[in-house]
Design a protein around this nucleic acid. Sequence first.
RNA 1: GGCUCGUUGGUCAAGGGGUCAAGACGCCGCCCUCUCACGGCGGAAUCAGGGGUUCGAGUCCCCUACGAGCUGCCA
Length: 495
Amino acid sequence: MSKVRTRYAPSPTGRMHVGNLRTALYEYLIAKHEDGDFILRIEDTDQERYVDGAIDIIYRTLEGTGLIHDEGPDKDGGYGPYVQSERMASGIYLDYAKKLVDKGAAYYCFCTKERLDSLKKAFGDSDDSKEDYKEIIKYDKHCLHLSKEEIEDKLAQNIPYVIRQNNPLEGSTTFHDAIFGSITVDNEELDDMILIKSDGYPTYNFANVVDDHMMKITHVVRGNEYLSSTPKYTRLYQDFGWEEPVYVHLPLITNEEHKKLSKRSGHASYEDLIEQGFISEAIVNFVALLGWSSPNNTEIMSLEELIRDFDYRNINKSPAVFDIVKLRWMNSEYIKMMDGDKFFNMALPYIKEVISKDLDYRRISDLIKTRIETLCDIGEMIDFFEELPEYNVEMFTHKKMKTNTESSLKVLRDLLPRFEALEDYSEASIESLIKSYVSEKEIKNGQGLWPVRTAISGKQSTPGGAYEIMSILGKEESLCRIRLAIDMLEKAINE
RNA sequence: GGCUCGUUGGUCAAGGGGUCAAGACGCCGCCCUCUCACGGCGGAAUCAGGGGUUCGAGUCCCCUACGAGCUGCCA
């Protein structure tokens, strides 16, 4: 059996959206599961849509996600070039197209845009929303019947031309997909698609077939949206007399409205997600589970585990909704599993964004590790360290803690001199001080701790409790905040 | 409009004719607890509809409905 070779063939048109990322991932996994090669090929045959810097985004994304390619523009494996515009320079696409012309499987077409437009037929109600109003065009093979002389003549006159596939009008074409099974389409439905554009570039569809064959790609993995055009690919393979690869068409990924993900939905691309505070491993893991599930029913899986367990035959047929809520959960799982040092390094920039004081960032980092879903949650969780927020005295009243303004005032008044006298502001020291006060007064932990935590944070909820926060804030700031609380409570009670 | 594909809880999903249809996210409740999280325990919630085939159907066939994709000198 020949070595498995898959390819990721993006067109450099912008950021890599999660659908493309999943395609790349599955291609990588299929290859690596069989110890095969994963190839990167840039499909830049559309100069109109080419975006500067997009190739760098592709490199960055593959590197960031760990989908390391074995061959590509930057890694020659003997099947180059790996950029279609460079391949075109050698004239291979035109040569192959001409071979098809010689066989009668393709033909020159000189039709003008105007003539093509006249073939279009409107249907649907034009009063309806634009989406219902479509045009249908199937080329009428007008130029198929040009004589050899006529063609030579037009070519000599430099009349612009394209080369079209010559599909039969009768019979049917069948291909097999690893996920969707056998699909048969009447040849009558097959349009004579363009192989070579008038600018000399091949269309994606044609370049794909030629390149996949020349690069010995064994498994063609791509989005479901290509299912409809695959019969035309099959005809091309047959006309060339080439062996077809294994087709693996992937179900669509949709947004919550069950529509194709769009750039506007915000969470569409890998880089968007990174900016939203998601971590790479979680994104990869989550995306892997959109359309596939592990046979041993595990969900949190490293790339290595995915390689080991992935089997493309288990891929789902139905479209999957991209559920960012579940991604958030998975992201939080990855953060919790992460080594403390590693998390600290990732969290530090987010911490420094809201805290400029000289505090123990590492301890803050440890406090938030189990409490955040994305790195972007950090800011609002810890901003009170930097500055005490304005808060209402009513916050001291808590039913479950059995506290109110009076009881809180008493606790804080009792504790203030002890805190003032305390030298060691370590967590343990503060803890034993408060604990002994609580047992001395025979009150509940909550009755003693709620007022303190409220006073030093000004928040209903905080990462960590009173001991942790006080020890991080330090003596001076803690005392200052407690005195402020006492003032507020006194004022409120006297009114 | 035509062609193609799809349809198991709100979401991801297991399930290839025969236990009360797994599991996860989310949601709700309880426990733990100085708050919020973490963790633990429990709960509600699903086979789109209709016909067949069969002793028996989420699983096979047909129809309907709904959804999606394609219908570009885009990929």
